[in-house]
Amino acid sequence: MSAALDYRVTPNDDWLFDLATPCYVFDPQAVLASYATLRERLGTKLIVSLKANSQADLFVRCGHAFTDGVELASLGELDVVVGRGKIPKYLNNPSMNEAFIRAGLASRCHFILDNPDLAQRFAKLAAGKVTGDVLLRMNAGALASTEARKEWHDHFGMTPHEAFHVAEMLAAAGIRVTGLHVFSGSHTFRAGRRVDDGPDSADLALALARFAEELARVTGTPPTFLNLGGGFSEKGHERPVFDRYRERIVPVVDRYEIAHESGRGIFGNAGIFVTRVVAVKHWWDRTIVVCDGGMSHNFLLAKTESMLKTWQAPRIVRRELPQSVRGNATRIRHTPLSFVGSTCSRADVIGRITEPALAPDPGDLLLFEGCGAYNRTYTVGGFLSQQPAHVYIRQA
């Protein structure tokens, strides 16, 4: 049987039935392993994007390993890390307000400035204060110009013209731009084998280094630190991809202090979503499995933002109960199985099994893998005023 259809209960599964559902279970050891592997394959510093998973209990168990720093996008995330170690803290939010800036200055944070208006607010509040590194975020599409991939043209960062203006304005305020930042978006990391594969992540890194040289000629103080972003998949990348990438960016690594950043690639495979079956409806063309958790607890599973919906097939975990306790329907193979959530929305479909499978019974558990990044927080929690999912940290 495939993993999704594996009904066998092992001793390692027993603890799941004691959990309050729906819930997330995060594994610190998986986080630490993914971080170490990605950092080693990149051969550079690796900054952790905490917005992917800002669960405080998880950070307490993993934060000691994030020695290159964390990227924070809100006051709430800053509150999670302040006082929990001396790792570098990078603040990055296009709409950063005065309260966030003041808190960052008080916490000795580094700042990634997204636009001229933000830079002006920052300069006013930082005047006369000791600041950490100040980086300008560049728009990937504008930076690479005609060599950009279509998905690089998002709404983040500055054009080169804006960056020149901001650097001069900050210099006049006595604030030095020490670095540059660029990020081309989620799932965009690639290192092509051939030139005709089109622009890749190495081309973007080289473009950022070229702009750093141009900026140095204008300001007279060259940036020394380049944050090349990431876009790494939670599914990982083969070592040859990293080898090609590292070979291409040697000229950049030789001249600058380099960092990459990742959230999805570090947390993605370090969490599962667990929901309990509360009802099963056997129809002539399908079986509907109603769960106590759905899109109001894990919006991403519903695939509402996908053009082509390919739902995840959960692993079904059953208690070893006598057949007399279970319904006769479990003796019959049903197809397909649709797993639906706890709201009144037709979009609340969180999983599907299309091949022949034994339907679960009420009380069985469904385990959705790969829910460690964004799933808990990128969710319409206000719908129906449902309580958020519980959170557990798996013990070593």
Rank of each mutant, 00 (worst) to 15 (best):
H153M: 05
D154H: 12
D154F: 06
D154P: 06
H155K: 12
H155S: 14
H155D: 14
F156T: 10
F156M: 12
G157V: 09
G157E: 02
G157I: 08
G157H: 08
G157N: 05
G157C: 07
T159P: 08
P160N: 03
P160E: 05
P160Y: 03
H161T: 12
H161A: 13
E162Q: 13
A163Y: 03
A163K: 03
A163V: 10
F164E: 08
F164H: 11
H165A: 13
E168R: 08
E168Q: 14
M169E: 05
L170H: 04
L170W: 05
A171Q: 10
A171I: 05
A171K: 15
A171T: 12
A171V: 01
A172P: 07
A173W: 05
I175P: 11
I175H: 11
I175T: 11
R176A: 15
R176M: 15
V177Y: 02
V177W: 00
V177G: 00
G179S: 00
L180K: 01
H181S: 06
H181K: 00
H181F: 11
V182M: 06
V182D: 02
S184E: 15
S184C: 13
G185S: 10
G185P: 07
S186Y: 03
H187R: 13
H187L: 10
H187G: 10
F189L: 11
R190W: 07
R190H: 14
A191N: 11
A191Q: 09
R193Y: 11
R194F: 12
R194A: 11
R194Y: 09
R194P: 00
V195H: 14
V195L: 08
D196S: 05
D196H: 02
D196L: 05
D196Y: 04
D197V: 09
D197S: 13
P199K: 07
D200G: 04
A202H: 01
A202N: 02
D203N: 03
L204W: 04
L204F: 00
L204C: 08
A205T: 14
A205G: 12
A205N: 04
A205V: 12
A207R: 03
L208I: 01
A209K: 01
R210D: 05
R210S: 10
F211K: 03
F211S: 00
E213N: 15
E213P: 04
E213G: 14
E214I: 11
A216E: 06
V218D: 09
V218P: 06
V218C: 13
V218H: 13
